[in-house]
Write a protein that binds this DNA or RNA. Structure first.
Lengths: 134, 134
DNA sequence: CCAGTTGGTTACCAATGGAAACCAGGTGTG
DNA sequence: CACACCTGGTTTCCATTGGTAACCAACTGG
């Protein structure tokens, strides 16, 4: 997830225009970064306001410390989140969404809304499918 | 991804209302299903029109046959895609987005649009980050 | 009869993710 | 001083996941 995510050099920009099919279109690149269990969750959580490392850990049920620090570092690298270290005692590290990250949160909001209204239909479809196939 | 994705029985529906934090809120459930490398890609590809198995494989660069069949089956179970077998020779299997799937495609469209316009900023952020930390 | 089409499944192996231990740096308590 | 405990991590180890490639079944056309 870290390596090989840069735009492959030598590919003219026009190659991918509109293709979700080509491996280097922007949608693929975006999915390479946010299509994991935690990034979207952390992004929306941070959208409610800046939060410290352990607060995030407590609030987002099920994140391991490892994935939390790993995902946050990646979000920082991608310019979606901002990490601030305050030299208090003990040291406190605060994470916040960047302006760019906020635009992504807004772009993802319709998907969240879809989940809230449509997930029951998905569950129902699963039940129908499972009953048919057993 | 197949097991443990059903709504945990015994959890009152009010538990998750609004919490992205709780493990059983609809957003988490949605992410459990679409936050992988292929589902979103296949969904948007199928949104252009129904397509046969091997056509999908050829068009979506990089999908293995295994993940293609696995992801399509899951999308069918979730009610997002419809699988149609025509008893021609050789047999032809066509996949299409369901009406429910189409509403999801529309819900993720803003995210796709974000990718098209904002990914350059992400790449720039990465370069700045990498230069700082080396 | 053999190659090639269709749409898969299976076996094997490398990479990813999660649980828990460990670490550094500092405070406060007995 | 020794010890427990807070902060925010990193490391280790193991289970699950995903990719590669081989195999399979059913049928056709040469």
């Amino acid at each position: 997830m870290q390596e090989g995510t840069e735009i492959s050099p030598g590919h003219p920009a026009e190659t991918w225009r509109g293709d979700v099919y080509a491996a280097n279109c922007p949608t693929r690149l975006l999915l390479d970064r946010i299509a994991d269990k935690w990034t979207v969750l952390l992004l929306t959580t941070l959208a409610d306001g800046p939060m410290r490392f352990n607060a995030l850990k407590r609030r987002v049920e099920g994140v391991s410390q490892k994935m939390l620090s790993q995902t946050l570092r990646q979000m920082e690298r991608d310019g979606l989140a901002v990490r601030t270290v305050e030299a208090t005692v003990p040291v406190s590290v605060t994470y916040a969404v960047s302006p760019l990250g906020l635009t992504l949160v807004q772009a993802i909001q319709p998907m969240i809304d879809w989940a809230e209204t449509r997930m029951p239909e998905v569950e129902q479809a699963q039940q129908v499918y499972d009953r048919r196939s057993t």
